Simulated scan of single mutants.
Amino acid sequence: MEIYNPSTRKSITLPNESSADYIYLGYDPIDGDYKVLCLVKAQDLRVLTVGKDTFWRKIQDFPPHFRCSPYSPDLSLIGVLYYGVYHHLPDGILLHPDHLILAIMSFDVRSEIFDLINLPELLDNVMHPILTTYEGRLEFFCNIRHGDSTFILWVLEDDVKHEWSKHLYVPPPLDGHTYDDFLAFCFIDGGEFVLAPRPFRSEEPFYAVYYDIKKNAVGRVFIEEIFT
């Protein structure tokens, strides 16, 4: 297991943990430490401080949770690592077929304290949840088939009280297509959704669509060649 820095083109070899299920990297801006968090097996979390620890340290106290499947989004922001998880619903509430609900786990990189953040709404039709930032705050969006062209963005206003604000955006019409033909896979901090065609066909010209929420304008960028 290695961590590679593309800017320096150097890598660091970590102590072997062959049974790791998922791995996340967080940064502590106060002490300047990078920490790697991994789930070794069900409900067994371990952490390692890069360049300081010679072995993985087992974490004893954390809210029970499970990795989002098949995709677990993650984001490191101002000393806190956020990643998507599932956790059990309260007793008697059966909204999800497997009795799990999507949430966001926060991990304070410096103190190594966990906090489970519930999403602002109970979403039972989430497709590829994505964590992002906008104007220095944690945000969340996902691909949900609404049958219209509305984009929904949730902003974490208070990470202690777990308070979210909901923002709706209706983009202008897209010539020759509907927004159901695209998959939003990225949100740029400057205020743009980036969308790609769904499904991708290698024989057709490929282009990305940018939707600017500030200007309420859309644009396209054609990609001349795709390597598959």
Score class of each variant (00 low, 15 high):
L153V: 02
P197K: 03
L195K: 03
R9T: 09
P120A: 02
K161N: 14
K214H: 15
R198A: 02
P120D: 03
R198P: 00
D53W: 04
K52C: 05
S72A: 14
E203Q: 09
D124Y: 06
H87S: 15
L122E: 09
N125V: 06
I104Q: 06
W164C: 05
I30T: 00
Y4A: 03
T133Y: 08
T49Q: 08
Y34H: 14
N143D: 15
I188T: 13
G219F: 09
L75C: 08
Y83T: 06
V50G: 15
D91H: 07
P97K: 14
Y22Q: 07
E135G: 05
C186S: 13
F200G: 00
Y207S: 15
C68R: 14
H99D: 05
T54D: 13
Y4G: 04
H128D: 13
G147C: 03
M105G: 10
E163Q: 12
E163H: 12
Y179G: 06
L195P: 05
Q43S: 14
V218E: 07
D180P: 00
I30P: 00
F206K: 03
E204F: 06
G190Y: 06
I3A: 05
I226G: 00
E139Y: 02
D31V: 00
L122R: 03
S106Y: 00
N143G: 06
D158V: 07
N125L: 02
E17C: 11
I188L: 15
P199E: 00
G79A: 07
V126N: 00
V50F: 09
L75G: 08
H87C: 14
P129L: 00
R57P: 01
H96C: 02
S11L: 13
N216I: 03
P63I: 02
D28R: 12
G32P: 02
W56A: 13
V126Y: 05
T132E: 13
H162V: 11
I144A: 03
D33I: 04
T54V: 05
K166G: 00
L95Y: 07
P197C: 10
V194Q: 14
A20C: 08
P171K: 07
V47T: 15
H162Q: 08
F62D: 09
V218L: 15
P29V: 11
P29H: 10
P29S: 04
Y86N: 01
P205W: 04
R9A: 04
G190T: 09
S11Y: 14
K52I: 07
N5M: 04
E225K: 15
H87Q: 08
L119C: 02
P120F: 05
R220T: 13
L48M: 06
D21G: 11
R198W: 01
N143Q: 11
R198F: 03
L25I: 15
D124V: 13
T132F: 13
D159F: 08
H128M: 07
L25H: 05
I104N: 10
V194E: 08
A20I: 01
C68E: 10
S7Y: 07
S165Y: 04
V50W: 12
L168V: 05
P129A: 01
L39V: 07
D91Y: 05
K52M: 02
K10M: 11
V160K: 15
L45T: 05
V50D: 12
N16H: 11
R201S: 06
D33R: 07
F140H: 15
L153S: 13
E121T: 12
L156N: 02
